[in-house]
Amino acid sequence: MQPVIEISDLKVFYEDAQALNGISLDVYPNEILGIIGPAQSGKTTLLKVINRTLEFTQGTSIEGTVKLDGIDINSISDVYGLRRRIGMVLPLPVGLPLSIYDNVAFAPRTAGLRNKTDLDEIVERCLQQAALWDEVKDRLDSLGTKLSGGQQQRLTIARALSHQPEILCLDEFSIAVDPITTMRIEDVLKTLKEEMTILLVTNLVQQAKRLANRTAFMLNGDLIEIDETDVIFSENPTNQSTYDYVNGTFG
């Protein structure tokens, strides 16, 4: 099977430190790949390389290759088009200073969609998928930044889905979301993977266990182990530190 994302020997340097020390992994279509690992292990950095937003951090340099559908992302000249193929949910909800409606309609509009009925439809579908529709359907015109933390987080999920990405990257999406809503979103993710590939960075190892087909364990910029989720969470993963981390006896 042709991988959607092929990462080989990826190294990332920030101005004063190396964040990824040569990572290689493939992501296959319609899988949920869980990425777990303690703080500072380079999970967020990895996601930012894939949608090429790391370019906005001053003084970074990247070595190695990342291919999307077999094409090196650095050779793609339409970087805006590339980013639209990837949905990104950041760890802290970032409400764009726009209304709820406009937040979700932003990406489709950017892509050139103007038809009001189409936009309405997208906004409703995405808010439904993010389990937010019922709470906001009567106040779509109020500011997105006025929602509660958990609601804003779901708004960013709706936003990430609005451009029908091929790949959905979730970076600790449940950090500000209550457990019940988290479960609802997790259910949505299970159905979404029929349509797209999902990269799920999470601090909750149980979340990876529940959702991911395969799980990658990262530590201090290294990819320690990547395998079927069952194997990672079994009694004998290849690496001892994986076992320790998963079972909470790490460090």
């Binding site: 980013r83 764009l96 200073p97 960013t156």
Partner: peptide
């Protein structure tokens, strides 16, 4: 910076990011 990143992640051009955000 996260506002910028969020907008860019949605495929916005530099011009859109400046004028809209």
């Amino acid at each position: 910076i996260s506002v910028r990143e969020a907008a860019y992640a949605l495929g916005a051009t530099r011009w859109r990011v400046v004028t809209d955000h």
